[in-house]
Amino acid sequence: MSPKTTTPSLHKVIMVGSGGVGKSALTLQFMYDEFVEDYEPTKADSYRKKVVLDGEEVQIDILDTAGQEDYAAIRDNYFRSGEGFLCVFSITESDSFQATQEFREQILRVKGDQSVPFVLVGNKSDLEDRRKVSKEDAENRAAEWGVPYVETSAKTRTNVDKVFFDLMREIRVRKDVEGGDKDAPNKHKKRKKLKCSIL
């Protein structure tokens, strides 16, 4: 079965952020258009599906990590495999916003790359009345890091697709730059070959 489907490029996205900010909710909303009301702490969930990114079929692999500190030690391993990061905090919880700093640092340390694809996500934007983190602060921080900042709501699906797609675009751009001339023609060849065989 698998050989028949083309092997589209795979973008590995990792959800990071404190516990309870809605990483899993965002993931599930993106994956299955489903909003989970009840809260069950995640350990480490894996999701992967095909999506069409700007007319090109790609695969997105989402690693939904644990926000709880208990799992902090194993994060390094997860982060290593990630190509792009959605750093999520809850706009109703300033601690979670503070924590993004640590996550960012850990990611940069593990990846050793200042310009790793990264989106700062302020979730729970539907709870405007309970907002604790001002948009300005978040934007300032994002500007400081040189990353985009998007406010989302897993409940209303606001900007959910946007953050994932934006991040994937960045990952793609990044790969194109990195892969340079080597990868690109290779892929083309493969694709052509495969197409031929299908025909």
Binding site: T42, K43, R48
Partner: peptide, 22 residues
């Protein structure tokens, strides 16, 4: 029509782990 599993929660664990397959 073939089933396709795209999500596993959690993605690892000891025997007896309760998993959600999506």
């Amino acid at each position: 029509g073939a089933p396709l599993v795209t999500g596993m929660s959690p993605k690892e664990g000891p025997p007896g782990t309760k998993v959600t397959i999506r």
